[in-house]
Design a binder for these strands. Structure first.
Length: 309
DNA sequence: GCTATTTGACCTTA
DNA sequence: TAAGGTCAAATAGC
C-alpha cells in the first residue's frame, strides 16, 4: 500500500478506531435526525441532509469492514476523510438549487442546447462514496445512460431522480466499478434531492442494491425489530431499484443467472445506540443475517462481480 | 398500454 | 477534436 497512510497505521487497531468513529458519528447524526423529525416545522432539507450523512457514515463503516487487512483499506479511509468535509451540515445548507430548466414543450434534437446543463459548470454540490457493495440511499433513481469511460475498465452508469420531471428534482448520481479485488464501487452524487419522495418513510434505509443483496433497514426504534415488509408501502420503490440493477446486469450478460429476492428478504437492523460498543453492534449486525440470507447475499455479490469483471 | 431500460446521437467543455 | 454527460427513440418487461 502506497501513499498517504503509513503502513503501521493501517493496523487492526487503526481500522477499529475508524469504525468506531464512523459508528459514533452515525449514532450522533441519527439522534439529530430523530430530533429534526420530531419537529414538524423544521426544514425538511435538514432531515434529508442528516439522512445522507448517516447513510454515508454507515457506508464508510461497511467500506472499512469489508476491506481485509493488507488490502487497500488506507485508500478507502483516505477517500472517506477527503469526502467528509463535503458532508458538513453547515456547508450543505447553502448549496444552490437551480431552477428546473426543462421546458414544458418537447424540444427537437436541434433544441437540446436550450436545456442542456453540463455537469462541470454546474454549482450542484457533489460528493462520492467508495463502497465494496452497492448502496441504496433510500431515494428512487432511474437509469438514463451508460458510458464507457476512457482508461476505465468498467462503464459508468448514470442515474437521475425518478421525480426529475414530476417535481423538478435535479439530483443525479453515477455508479462506476473501479476495482475488482476487493470489489469497489464509486457512487458519485450530484445535487440534493428537492423532491418529496411519496414512497419514502422516515425510517432510514441502508440497502445494498447488488442484484441479490438483502435489504438493510436501520430503525430508530429499538422495539421495532420485526420485519415490516408487509406494513411499509414504500418498500416497493426498493424493489424497483433492485430491478434496475438486476436488469442492467442481465442485459449485459445473459450467461449469468441471478437469484432474485422477494421483498420479504428485507430485515431490520437493531438499534445501534443500544449497544455498548461499536464492535458489539457490528457483531450483532453480522449475525442478524441468517445463513440463507448471508449465503444469498454472497451469491449475489459473486455473480455481480463476475459480470462486472 | 404503461413504465423502465438500452443505446446511438447529440451537445458542451476542455 | 476528444471525452464525458444527457437526450430520446426504440425496445423490453410487466
Amino acid at each position: 500500500m502506497e501513499g498517504f497512510w503509513p503502513e503501521n497505521l493501517v493496523s487492526t487497531n487503526f481500522i477499529q478506531k475508524k469504525v468506531n468513529d464512523e459508528l459514533v458519528a452515525g449514532q450522533e447524526l441519527a439522534k439529530q435526525l430523530r430530533n429534526v423529525l420530531a419537529k414538524s416545522d423544521d426544514d425538511p432539507r435538514s432531515a434529508e441532509d442528516l439522512m445522507m450523512q448517516i447513510v454515508k457514515s454507515f457506508s464508510n463503516t461497511l467500506s472499512i469492514l469489508n476491506f481485509e487487512e493488507g488490502h487497500d483499506v488506507a485508500s478507502v479511509i483516505s477517500q472517506i476523510q477527503t469526502d467528509l468535509p463535503c458532508l458538513d451540515a453547515r456547508k450543505m445548507k447553502d448549496h444552490s438549487r437551480e431552477s428546473f430548466r426543462r421546458s414544458t414543450t418537447t424540444p427537437t434534437k436541434k433544441d437540446r442546447r436550450a436545456f442542456y446543463d453540463r455537469r462541470r459548470t454546474s454549482s450542484l454540490r457533489t460528493w462520492n462514496i467508495d463502497t465494496p457493495t452497492l448502496i441504496n440511499d433510500g431515494q428512487t433513481w432511474r437509469k438514463y445512460g451508460q458510458k464507457v469511460i476512457l482508461n476505465a475498465k468498467y462503464p459508468r452508469h448514470y442515474f437521475r431522480c425518478t421525480y426529475k420531471y414530476d417535481q423538478g428534482c435535479k439530483a443525479t448520481k453515477q455508479i462506476q466499478r473501479i476495482q475488482v479485488n476487493p470489489p469497489l464501487y464509486r457512487t458519485t452524487y450530484f445535487g440534493n434531492h428537492t423532491c418529496r419522495n411519496l414512497h419514502q418513510d422516515p425510517e432510514l434505509i441502508l440497502d445494498c442494491t447488488s442484484p441479490s443483496d438483502t435489504s438493510i433497514f436501520i430503525s430508530f426504534d429499538s422495539t421495532n425489530l420485526i420485519n415490516k415488509q408487509d406494513h411499509v408501502p414504500f418498500l416497493s420503490s426498493l424493489s424497483s431499484i433492485k430491478q434496475e440493477i438486476k436488469e442492467d446486469i442481465i442485459t449485459c450478460d445473459a450467461n449469468h443467472s441471478f437469484q432474485t429476492f422477494s421483498s420479504s428478504d428485507n430485515f431490520m437492523f437493531p438499534d445501534l445506540a443500544a449497544f455498548p460498543s461499536p464492535a458489539e453492534a457490528m457483531a450483532v449486525l453480522s449475525s442478524t443475517l441468517d445463513q440463507s440470507d448471508y449465503g444469498d447475499a454472497m451469491y449475489g455479490m459473486t455473480e455481480y462481480d463476475n459480470f462486472l469483471s
